[in-house]
Each structure stands twice: as structure tokens, then as C-alpha cells.
Amino acid sequence: MKRLFLLATLLWSANTRAQDAPALKLVACEGKAQGTYYIVKYLSTDTTSLQPRIDSLFGVIDQSLSLYKPGSLINQFNATGKVTMDEHMKAVIQKALTTNKATNGLFDITVKPLVYLWGFGVNKPSFKGVPPPDSIKAALAYIGSRYLRVKGEELSTTKKGVQIDCNGIAQGYTVDVVGHFLQQLGINNYLVDVGGELCAKGHNHQHKVWSVGIERPSPGDTAYEPVQGLVRLPDKGIATSGNYRRFFDQGRTRFAHTIHPLTGVALHNNIISVTLIAKDCFTADAFDNPLILMGVEKGLAYIAQHPEHGLEAIYIYKDADGGIKEAFSKGFKAYMEF
């Protein structure tokens, strides 16, 4: 009888606390940043907009890593070959260097000269199309993370003319920074989306794990639409690399903005996109470009052989007949909602 009374008392206390607790409400902020859009959704008892503080956070990161921002730390490095890094630049550089080693050079932030040569940089080239072989060869002489040195807070290069472009990883880093900012405010249920790179924690206003769609090209390759089903993100990050947003066509070949740092050639295989799920968006964003360069078979084999990275992937690609196909890593389907 005492046990029943104690159980009833505990249930009553729990229900009383639940009723007394302020209700969580869905709050959304959205705007423009890093050359794209951002959307932040979260649950909170305080509906005061966090957008000014989020915009300020984007501004701080841009001052560190944006090639479009005059005087940014990355532009200072590219102009002089040396810079004193802030916490944001240091985190991105360290991640970039470890990813470079983990992918045997397939991820390399010193790819900037090639990005500009192929016409995907801030300044457009005077011509459009595939660069001459001798121009690619000349640019390759300045490509290689082996030329970068980190000593404390200082980043320097051992070869004059080496420049960096962190666009292949900075967006994923920014997503996680915004997520950490929310957590510091006691917000534990959120979804952060910056240009299609996302991280999620907790649940949405329907008390379900946050879900997102995956973009898939329509038959004409001029637009994109969600794959049937959604991807659940239980405290994970997700990033996509593809050939259908920034590209040019020459003849029957499509050249995308992802540049192979070892050959100097822009992506032109049969892969339309690869979407990665990882422990955080920073990691997913770091590996999506190398995995699209590897191709479907080698990419899926790499994921299986390197469980330490915690990656799961879906490839969307064209088969020999031009049909759109999908290939999954072993654990990816566990995140799918069909």
C-alpha cells in the first residue's frame, strides 16, 4: 500500500511539474549569409527573435573566412602568405588539414588557383570553358596542403603564391557554430540550415526527430526535387555536394565546381550528388567533396573501411542509359522515412 501511495505521489509530482513548466514554442529566423540563405528553427519559452545575434555571428565568421569580405583573415593570408588566426579560422584550418590526410589529398583548401581558373571563384576569368592543359599544369604547382604550416595561432605558407579557399568546409563549420550558440542559451531542440547544409538536435514542435528532404534533379537536370521520403537527423549533421547548382556544359560534358586537387580537373563524372550524414555538419561538409570525387563504388568502400569518421551516404547518379539511380552506404537507410 505504501508503494502504491509513493508511486501515486511521484506521478502527481511529475504531472504537476509538467503542467507548471512553460510551454515550448517554435521560433524561426531566416536571412541571407555566406552567399546563400539560412533558416534556424528552435523550440523555446522565449519567443524574442535571435536573428540580430545570429546575423552578428555570421558577420564574425565572414570576417575570418569569407573570400568576398575585403580585409578578412583568409584574404590577408592569400595576400601575404601569413596570418594570425582567430578561433574560427584555426578550427577550420585544423579540420581541413586532418581531412586532407584522411583522404590522401582529395580534400585540399589550397585549391583556390584551380577554382578561379575554372571560373568558379569570386573573380570570373576572361574566358568560359575548360582551361588549357598548360594553365592547369601551372596552377597545380601551387596546390598542396604540404605547403601550409600552423604554429600556435599563426598560419603561414612555405611556398610563395600558395592561396587557400575554405568554401568547401566553412559552411558546415558555421552550421555547427550556430547550433552551439543555441545550446549555450539553453536551447536543446533546433534545426540549423545554411544553404542546404544542416545540423539538428532534439525534436521539433511535433515531438518528432527533425527531418529533411534530399534534393534530386528532375529529368532535365535544370531543377531539383526531394527524393521520396525524408531523412531523420537525430543529433546529426548533413551536407550535400553535387553537380547541379554551379556548373557549365561543354559539348556533352558537364563540369561542376568541385575541383580534383590532384589532377586539376573539374568534376565531370556520372555522379549527380552525394549526401553525407555525420556526427556534425562540419565533418559531413569536409568529406562530401572527396567522396563525390571518389565515385560511387570507391566512395562507399571508403565509408565501410573508415568507420572512425562515422559517415553514411546516399549517392544519386546516372547509369549508362541515363537513368537516375541511388546507392546507399550500409547504415544510411536507417535514417530514411519512406
Score class of each variant (00 low, 15 high):
45 T>M: 15
191 L>Y: 03
163 Q>N: 07
287 F>Y: 14
130 V>W: 10
13 S>M: 12
269 N>E: 11
23 A>N: 12
260 H>P: 05
3 R>D: 10
149 R>C: 01
193 D>Y: 00
44 S>K: 12
200 A>T: 06
84 T>H: 13
203 H>P: 00
272 I>C: 15
325 K>Q: 10
309 H>E: 11
48 T>L: 15
256 A>C: 02
262 L>M: 07
244 Y>L: 05
11 L>Q: 07
331 G>L: 07
22 P>N: 12
153 E>Y: 14
90 K>L: 08
116 Y>W: 09
289 N>K: 15
290 P>A: 10
169 I>G: 07
150 V>S: 09
189 N>D: 15
133 P>K: 14
236 K>L: 02
291 L>Y: 02
18 A>M: 12
25 K>S: 12
36 T>G: 02
337 E>Y: 06
232 R>D: 11
73 L>I: 11
96 A>D: 00
336 M>I: 08
207 H>F: 04
127 F>T: 13
267 L>K: 14
102 A>N: 09
19 Q>G: 09
239 A>P: 00
5 F>R: 12
180 H>D: 15
265 V>T: 09
290 P>F: 08
300 L>C: 02
42 Y>A: 05
325 K>C: 10
325 K>W: 00
222 T>F: 11
88 H>Q: 13
22 P>G: 09
33 A>P: 01
145 S>W: 02
246 R>D: 04
109 I>Y: 02
294 M>I: 07
286 A>T: 06
18 A>D: 14
251 G>V: 03
299 G>K: 01
130 V>G: 09
162 V>M: 08
218 S>T: 14
252 R>F: 14
69 K>N: 07
195 G>Y: 00
106 L>D: 06
136 I>W: 14
326 E>C: 00
135 S>A: 15
193 D>P: 03
91 A>E: 13
67 L>V: 00
79 A>S: 13
121 G>S: 02
112 K>D: 04
199 C>H: 05
